[in-house]
Simulated scan of single mutants.
Amino acid sequence: MTTESKTIQITIDEDSGIPLWLQLRNRLIYLITSGYYATGDKLPTVREMAVDLGINYNTVSKVYQDIERDGYIVSKRGRGTFAHDGYRKHADAADNAADSLADVFIQQCRELGVPRADIVGLVEKRLKAAEG
């Protein structure tokens, strides 16, 4: 358990077409599920993260609230925000970071109203684009 926050291992691509908050959310989830942030490790404050990444405080705050609700972090008033393993308690919790990212992708597509068949087609299309 680290009481000092680690260096931020996040880059934001403003030209990617992916919303900044989603890039940040996905990267933080990856850093937690991959073990970069172990359970109990302190994360940067919302303000530190916003300044270091050059993005709006409210954007970072929204992401922290979102991933706290999903069990990836826990905030302790006056002490900070810490990586948490609450996400593992879900019956369908991912076994590894790649599964976790796939789960997040699927959830985001569903929130956008993308039908199941279109999600599969989208992944296949992006895989082909990445190969060629």
Rank of each mutant, 00 (worst) to 15 (best):
I55A: 14
N56T: 09
Y57N: 10
Y57K: 11
Y57D: 11
N58P: 00
N58S: 12
N58F: 06
V60W: 10
V60M: 15
S61E: 13
K62N: 15
E68S: 09
E68T: 09
E68K: 05
E68D: 12
R69K: 15
D70N: 10
D70H: 11
G71E: 05
G71W: 06
Y72E: 01
I73A: 00
V74Q: 06
K76E: 09
R77E: 12
G80R: 07
T81Y: 05
F82H: 07
F82P: 04
H84T: 02
H84G: 01
G86A: 13
G86R: 04
R88C: 07
H90R: 13
H90C: 04
H90W: 10
H90D: 12
D92T: 10
D92H: 12
D92V: 09
A93Y: 08
A93D: 06
A93P: 06
D95M: 03
D95R: 05
N96S: 05
A97G: 01
A97S: 11
A97Q: 02
A98D: 06
A98W: 01
A98Q: 06
D99H: 10
D99V: 05
S100H: 03
S100E: 04
S100Y: 03
L101N: 07
L101A: 07
A102K: 07
D103T: 09
V104Y: 06
V104P: 00
Q107N: 08
Q107V: 09
Q107H: 11
Q108S: 15
C109E: 10
R110W: 03
